[in-house]
Write a protein that binds this DNA or RNA. Sequence first.
RNA 1: GGCGGCAUCGCCAAGUGGGAAGGCAAAGGACUGCAAAUCCUUCAUCCUCGGUUCAAAUCCGAGUGCCGCCUCCA
Length: 475
Amino acid sequence: MALKIYNTLSRKKEEFIPLKKGEVGIYVCGPTVYNFIHIGNARPFIIFEVVRRFLKFKGYKVRYIQNLTDIDDKMINKARELNISVSELAEKFIQEYFIDADSLNIERADVHPRATEHIAEIIELLKGLEEKGYAYEIDGDVFFEVSKFKNYGKLSGQDIEELKIGARVEVDERKRDAIDFALWKKAKEGEPSWDSPWGKGRPGWHIECSAMSMKYLGKTFDIHAGGSDLIFPHHENEIAQSEANTNQQYVRYWMHNGYLCLNNQKMSKSLGNIMKVRDIIRKYKGEVIRYFILSAHYRSPLNFSEEQLQQAQNSLQRLNNIIYNVKHLLKQDKFKKFKDKDDELILEKRKEGEQQFIKAMDDDFNTPVALSRLFGFAKDVNIYLNSPSLKNKIILEEVIKFYQDLAGKVLGILKDFDKEQSFEQEIKKLIEDREKARKEKNWEKSDKIRDELKRKGVILEDTTEGVRWKKINSE
RNA sequence: GGCGGCAUCGCCAAGUGGGAAGGCAAAGGACUGCAAAUCCUUCAUCCUCGGUUCAAAUCCGAGUGCCGCCUCCA
């Protein structure tokens, strides 16, 4: 089955054919490190990381780049506010970003390039644009002359003339045209700056992504991704800068995720309606947040609410129970030796489930459908587990592997497979005491112990194969 | 003004011409000492009105409601 990706450039799902067979280069717009990230920021980070995981699962060699914007107006303002340097601010929030990314089980990119460490590359790019006549300098500022670039607007479907009419920005009168944008900004008093052929200054908003993406992935690369609010002007400008300079296609597949909303309004720092990952994670595990994000298709808008997180947690519990329950059976020492009809059936269902999962992911990363396949197989497994006959060890291991591969490796949820739950001596003792009481049919005592354990966060379940225990929401 | 998105069960959410997936919640039953877990059963004519078609949630037209980009934003 061929993978199809919705390409913002063509507004269609296209079959994905990488530039180099078997290899994929992906660039994702990362955070500006001036604050803690909110759940809306986290959406693309989770989604495109799943894209990377799935491509790897399909056997591609993936090179994944996610930048860290560590110099711009917001950085400067915030540093001033906190009375620290811009680089101190950056260091702090880069660290905080990785703490949040780790808690969400977001794997590190192959490279996390920082704008301030790529000033030389940025200046090279600017020189090229100046030589080719796309850039002009006015008193230490450098601008891109949009009207010189004939394909301007092809990503966002904007018409240059319409843009001029609709311009609501306060126009810098010195620019040749209102829609020209800054490539390099002259340093103001007290701002961090770098030497350049145009004097001391710093890179404009869009140029860092062009410079860094092309440095690490080449002049033309496969996938560039980010939130849909970046389509215009950020990505449009990136295309202009890059293609004007290289004279070749910059990005082959543009992917953009829908917004995360709070009360049906886009969550954004400027509106102030944000939920920080750092705060949510106190109450809900990373995998719950991941499940919530993946429960909707990445291009659809998604509304955030605590009720939904609760639902996500409940749904996830069903999948986690499968793992607990199968692992409990694997602790037995009696297994049947040969495969019978039931075993064959479950293997068949496993294969079918995996195929359907892959088919869903192949269809522009349809994670809601992919998730539903995990539930479909769960029912088959539970029926198998319910049968009174001896189980086949190989089958049980195959079930674990199914979830390990698809839920664990591809979606990044259900990551606790290998973790053995540890118990304090005290709790082990209580479980033993209860078993003893049950044998004596002292229900009052056994129930009391069970309640006590529940208060301590341990759930007991009596099964025909002995008592089974799990911790509530263990991390 | 230009460009774009969304509307499917109480909640979440797939489905783009021919069976309305899946999950959460709820109700009944089975199993259990009681529970829990699990299984079985129940639970939607898809915003409105027209049209095309043998056949439409799905295509076309009109309308209603909500949201976004064009300014920092994932």
